[in-house]
Design a protein around this nucleic acid. Sequence first.
DNA 1: ACCAAAGTTAGAACTTGTCAATATTTGGTC
DNA 2: GACCAAATATTGACAAGTTCTAACTTTGGT
Lengths: 151, 151
Amino acid sequence: MTSAPAQPEPLDLALRVRERGWRVSAQRRAVVDVFAGEHVHLTADEILRQARQELPEISRATVYNTLADLVEMGELLVVSAGDGPKRYDPNVARPHHHLICTRCGELRDVIPDGLEVLDLSTAERHGYQLAGFDITFRGLCADCGGSAVDA
Amino acid sequence: MTSAPAQPEPLDLALRVRERGWRVSAQRRAVVDVFAGEHVHLTADEILRQARQELPEISRATVYNTLADLVEMGELLVVSAGDGPKRYDPNVARPHHHLICTRCGELRDVIPDGLEVLDLSTAERHGYQLAGFDITFRGLCADCGGSAVDA
DNA sequence: ACCAAAGTTAGAACTTGTCAATATTTGGTC
DNA sequence: GACCAAATATTGACAAGTTCTAACTTTGGT
């Protein structure tokens, strides 16, 4: 659990955003630090709560402002998982998709093998200029249905 | 506009749901009729407004109740298109995916060729029991970016 | 020290959706 | 055709998630 990052991990998000001319205030650092961990998919509220452990006075609006900035900078991805609040995903380095448990809402990153590109035929493109695609796999996680199921 | 359906189209949704023991009230008919058209992806609010043109007294709660029933019966699909409200999609006959304009929000059905199944390796499955997947293509529609762009 | 710009704050407001209590309508039955 | 129970509809309150606004604080530069 205390393994050192082996690759150029996005841990120094704070450094990167400072280089973009962002003033890294205590509040912004508190938000950014929440993402220092592993693969997380946090809601704004979870981020607020965690940031408050570091900086109790931080306001909800600042968290939303900061998240919006980070998203606009491309440092965070927003995952709208059907129901419930949006999740913020710091894994912007590698393209990936998501696997969500339809019972408990758990969300994981996945990289389906053999699927680097997926395209639409001209006919199916309907004149769109494509920018990308997202795949959401639905299912029951190991806890919710992999073995034990309640009818 | 007054073209006759060539295939077993889902126009008689009202008939089908009646056969399931549903009492088709004037309100429910007003909702169901909204979907009588072509490929539509309407929000609950749009459905309410359209249903009110047919039946002005219909209440918001009834629309939500009716939509929930139809979804539970498998007669409507819910599409959560990132931002904004849910859309209701009457195209349940053929499996399909979606193409959304990131500027104006227009949503279309697409069937990417050569993609009937998409699976995850055991490793990527993380113990999940998979139920399906949805693909959302993002881009700019012809109106928003296909030809004319505002910087 | 002072100023302007950047950042933060609390709280109001808004959107989407749900809920609970009450009222109405319906189909069946005598 | 009156009556009843069940199904359905309505209103309005409520709730979650998010955005907005206006005022306040902090910062860096001079």
